[in-house]
Simulated assay, not measured.
Amino acid sequence: MSKVADVIEKSKSEGRAALVGYLPAGYPSVQESIDAAIALARNGADIIEIGIPYSDPVMDGSVIQAATTEALAKGFRVASAFNVVRAVTEATEDLGTAVLVMTYWNPVMRMGVDEFSRRLAEAGGAGLITPDLIPDEASEWFEASDKYGLDRVFLVAPSTTPERMAMTVAATRGFTYAVSLMGVTGARTAVDAAARHVVDSAREAGAPRVCVGLGVSNAEQVREIGAYADGVIVGTALVSALRDGGPEAVGRLAAELRMGLKRTTVAEA
């Protein structure tokens, strides 16, 4: 019922966490964003997050803000995101990669929740990550995601109360996105100590799969998080690699990050 869940469960069967990589659509061009996502998948990412550039990215750090601002300045439109998703899913079909779209909720509302969901499903997308949407306000998304068989990934954080944790976990399909620190996105030199607590809290609330994001930038951090989470999400470091070295650099970094997940176990943490 969930392509994302199937991918994560396959990773578990291999004795490791899943590698999840984020890249913004349309940066530095539409074709280069496609090429970078394909390179990401072919060098070890199990799940690809395609971000939709947004004019007010309140949760994004400076690197991703700069990338999405550039994409918008070059004329990127939301409709182009479906072309990116389709191209990536078709090119990585042999790998079994799941492709999610990460977006603030306003672009979905402006297109129409049903229309957006239909077009995403037709493009081969697995679902949506919605950082600024809470389950209380997601009734249209529940209906559309069920109608089109899409995963819905909600976020939890160190500040999430037990009651809201339970509500969010129950509403999620695919994986629960655990934010490992408070604040905007961006690569850090150390993994926040709250990450493991958020994962434990989500599991206590019934989450079958929890992936950790925000701040992961190198193989050592991937290994650390992969010892207790079901997936490790990397964004800013990949966008920086794309900015500085193009799609080939994204592929190289993905291969390095994947090395951090080789047969990771709790005992190795």
Rank of each mutant, 00 (worst) to 15 (best):
G235W: 12
P208R: 15
L214S: 13
V212P: 00
E220K: 14
G206R: 15
C211S: 14
V216I: 15
G246L: 14
G206Y: 14
G226V: 02
R223M: 10
A237C: 06
A249G: 07
E220N: 09
N218Y: 12
D244C: 09
G213S: 08
G215I: 05
Y228N: 04
Q221E: 09
R223T: 05
G226T: 01
S217P: 01
I225H: 01
V212N: 02
R209T: 01
R243V: 05
A249W: 04
A205S: 09
A207Y: 03
P247L: 07
Q221D: 06
G245T: 05
E224S: 07
G246Y: 11
G231Y: 10
R209Q: 07
D230A: 12
P208N: 15
R243T: 15
V239G: 01
I225L: 15
P208K: 15
I233H: 05
L242F: 12
V250W: 06
S217Y: 12
V212R: 01
V212G: 00
Y228G: 02
A227I: 05
G226S: 07
E248K: 10
D230F: 12
L242I: 06
A249T: 02
P247T: 03
S217H: 08
E224M: 12
V234W: 14
V250E: 00
R243M: 14
E220D: 13
G206N: 13
A219Q: 14
G231E: 02
L214M: 13
L214I: 11
R223K: 14
P208Y: 14
A205T: 02
V222W: 12
S217T: 06
V232Y: 08
G206P: 04
A249R: 05
V232F: 15
V216Y: 12
L214K: 07
P208V: 14
L242P: 01
V216G: 00
A241L: 10
G213P: 01
A205Y: 11
V212Y: 08
E204H: 07
A229K: 07
G206M: 11
